[in-house]
Nucleic acid binder design. Structure first.
Lengths: 203, 203
DNA sequence: AAAGCAAACTTGACAGTGTAAAGTTGTCTC
DNA sequence: GAGACAACTTTACACTGTCAAGTTTGCTTT
C-alpha cells in the first residue's frame, strides 16, 4: 500500500514521472493489457482523475511511456554497441544482440514502443532520424553502405531483420513458446545474414 | 440496423462465424481498439452475452479471428508465390511481396494474428510448422538451404526480414507515416538482401 | 499577513465494456 | 406431448475512461 504520509494531497510534486514509472511497472509485470489509467493512479497514490492533468488520456500516457522506453532502449543499445568488440561487424552484431536482449527483458515496453502511432512518437520532423536509437543503428550501418546506395536501404535491412526476429522470437513463434535466453533460438545463425548486408558481389 | 426478421431469437444458426466476421469487419475499419465483444454481438444481431456460448471471452474471440485471418493469409501467400514467376528467387520474392500486401490491406488483422499468444494459435504440436502459411514459406525457402544447414535458419532469416519490414513499414516508421502502396518505401532495395539468403561464399 | 489567482489535485457521475448468473425460447429425442 | 439440452436473453456487477464541478495548496501581489 502506498505510504500516503509522504505524498501531500493536491500537490504530488512529480506526478507525471511517477505515473510513467507506475505504467512501466505494470507493463513489465503484466504486459499490454495490464496498463490502465486507474491502476497507474493508484500506484502513484493519487485519484483516478489526476492523470488527466498530465496526459491526454490513456493514449497520452502510453505515448509518454513509449518515449521513456525509447530513451532506455537507446541507452541499452549504446552499451550493446561496444559489448562485442570494435570492428564494424562486431558493433553491428552487438546492437542486434542488444535489441533482442531488450525485447526479452522488456517485452511489454517493446510492444508499447511499437504499438503507439508513429506520428505521436516522432517530433516535428517525421523521419526515423529523430530517434536516438535510430542514430545508433545508422552509425553502426554506415561502414557497410556501398557507394551509390542510400544509407536507409542498409539501415532498413538491418532493422527489419532484427526487429522481425525479436518480435517473432519473444512471442514464441520461432519454435520455443516461452524463450528466456537468446540461446533458446538460432540467433547467431539467423544473424549470419548480417554479414551479407552491403555485400554487392555478384552471385 | 440489423434486420431482425431474418434471425430467429435463441437460435441464430451460425452465430460463431457471424461473430468472427463481425470482428474482422471491426478490425478492418478501426484497428485493434475497435474490437469489442458487445460491438461484435450487435453487428451479429444478438445480445451482448451470446458470444460467451461460442468463445472463451474476448481473448477467445480474438484467437478465433486470428485463426481465420491466418487461413486468409495462407491463401493470399499461395497466390502471391506464383505471381512473380517460377524461379525459386521469384517465388521467394513473390511471397515477401504478398506478405507486405497483406499487411498493407489488412493491418488490423495482421496485428491481431501476431498479438494473440502463440500457444493459443498453434495446435497440439508447438512448432510453427502447424501453420499453413509457414509451410508456404518453407517450400519457398527449401531451394536455398545449403547442405549442412538447418532449414529453420534460412526460414527464420526470410521471415524475420519480411515480418520486420512489414510491421515497421505499415506502422509508419520507415520514413512514410501513412504508406498506401508498396512503392511508398524502398521494398525492392531492402529485399535485395533475400538474394544473399543461403549464400555461403566467403567474403 | 491577507487576498487573489491558478495549478494540482479530489469527488462524483456517466457511458462503455467484460463477465457471470439466472431465466427464456427453440430444437431434438423418446 | 414431455423432458432435456442447446442457444440464446435479461439483469447485475465490477472495472475502465472521461468529464464536470469542487477543494486544496502554492505562489504572487499588495
Amino acid at each position: 500500500m502506498t505510504d500516503q504520509t509522504t505524498i501531500p494531497r493536491h500537490h504530488h510534486g512529480d506526478l507525471r514521472n511517477a505515473l510513467i514509472e507506475a505504467g512501466i511497472s505494470l507493463l513489465e509485470e503484466g504486459g499490454l493489457d495490464a496498463l490502465t489509467l486507474r491502476k497507474c493512479a493508484a500506484r502513484a497514490g493519487v485519484s483516478h482523475a489526476a492523470p488527466a492533468h498530465h496526459f491526454d488520456g490513456l493514449a497520452g500516457l502510453r505515448t509518454a511511456i513509449a518515449q521513456e522506453a525509447f530513451d532506455r532502449f537507446a541507452a541499452s543499445m549504446t552499451a550493446a554497441a561496444k559489448a562485442e568488440g570494435d570492428s564494424p561487424r562486431a558493433r553491428l552484431r552487438g546492437i542486434c544482440r542488444g535489441y533482442l536482449e531488450f525485447g526479452l527483458k522488456h517485452r511489454g515496453l517493446l510492444e508499447t514502443m511499437f504499438g503507439v502511432p508513429a506520428e505521436d512518437i516522432l517530433q516535428e520532423g517525421n523521419g526515423p532520424e529523430d530517434a536516438a536509437s535510430y542514430m545508433i543503428l545508422r552509425d553502426a550501418c554506415a561502414p557497410f553502405v556501398p557507394e551509390g546506395t542510400q544509407p536507409e536501404v542498409i539501415e532498413f535491412q538491418v532493422w527489419s531483420l532484427i526487429h522481425g526476429y525479436t518480435l517473432l522470437f519473444v512471442s514464441g513463434r520461432l519454435g520455443c513458446l516461452a524463450p528466456e535466453r537468446i540461446e533458446d533460438g538460432p540467433f547467431e545463425q539467423v544473424m549470419a545474414l548480417l554479414d551479407r548486408v552491403g555485400d554487392t558481389t555478384v552471385t
